[in-house]
Design a protein around this nucleic acid. Structure first.
Lengths: 182, 182
DNA sequence: TTGTTTGTACAGAAAAAACTGTACAAAACT
DNA sequence: AGTTTTGTACAGTTTTTTCTGTACAAACAA
């Protein structure tokens, strides 16, 4: 087993880097360490193996593996004869990035769009209402203009997510550098 | 001032939506509320005005306006005769998105790339070292293959950020829907 | 110079999040 | 059927983050 420590050191560096950056995905560093450990593990892992490997409670392993699964960074695996749930990291990191991007932003876009639509229609009624004072009317029109701007922005963002989901993004940014057209 | 409450309600809905989604930018909902308030404010605001408007301490206003500035969501403004610092939201949300995307990911990509490079070179020495046992050698080669994969992934991510920064992304996802080529 | 004003550093308080251990339901085995 | 195993809900604890108030340095005014 000569060189085992060096191997571990090289692994640990990567795992720790993932742990320290995974907050970008809205996850804790513990979840990142868990992900990193699974990444280097040749076989799918059980919760008990993760508990063993990371020295944390099984409850924690369960909750963070769920968080990782929700973001499609990890998936369940099956192996005949094994009763315990098995998990492994998804092997397509490009797709994982796209899934993450989509999951995170779609929801936000939808919430914003709904709110903007509602407020915009309220402002419209306000402007058309003869009861409304001139002063308020002017403010309402100002706000409406702002909302129309961000409505367009979120509409653009939505099309951006589309471009990731349908992989059009790979036309602009190809997988391999040398294939880059033009 | 007939209709003022309706106006406020329409504003508050948007501000609250921003507050509840700004965690995507790694910011707290308080910072989101602050951003939203500034968004609807016609003039640049001072820290004291924010304190007044949001009912929070000036210290908090100072720290979160700094966080908003770091992400390029807010910028300083100048107005002759005003001694206090003035802040306003950047009016180009598309550019803000790009800045955010760039700031967040560039750092992560750089940290990962450095770690990967280092570990990869360590693994290489390990494989070439005659002292290394065959067993470890094989594991090292496995790990190296994995690291080469994610090295390419981060290299792609870097080119993706390029495509945002240099606005090539607008070729793929145009600002206005009808201009969409093809 | 001295006196204000303004923004932020810092320490402590309050709130939120992460983590653990127990308890238990669902599933799998016998 | 009963027994064992496995994952997670939940309550309580620990840790982290957010927020506040005080204190003070830098900038400005007179």
């Amino acid at each position: 087993m000569e060189g085992k420590e060096a191997l571990d050191k090289a692994r640990e560096r990567i795992i720790e880097t993932i742990a320290q950056n995974i907050h970008l995905y809205g996850l804790t560093s513990s979840a990142g360490r868990q992900f990193g450990t699974m990444f280097f593990h040749n076989e799918p892992m059980t919760l008990d193996e993760m508990t063993e490997e990371l020295g944390m409670s099984k409850t924690s392993m369960s909750t963070s593996v769920r968080a990782l699964s929700d973001l499609k960074l990890v998936e369940r695996a099956w192996k005949r004869g094994v009763r315990k749930d098995l998990y492994q990291v998804k092997d397509d990191w490009y797709q994982s990035f796209i899934d993450l991007f989509s999951i995170k932003w779609r929801r936000s876009i939808s919430l914003h769009s709904t709110a903007i639509k509602k407020s915009l229609s309220e402002l419209e009624s306000l402007v058309e209402d003869p009861e409304t004072s001139e002063e308020v009317k002017e403010l309402a029109q100002q706000d409406a203009a702002r909302l129309e701007y961000i409505r367009d922005y979120f509409e653009w963002l939505d099309r951006l997510v589309d471009a990731f989901e349908n992989h059009e993004i790979f036309n602009l940014v190809p997988l391999t550098k040398d294939l880059k057209d033009k």
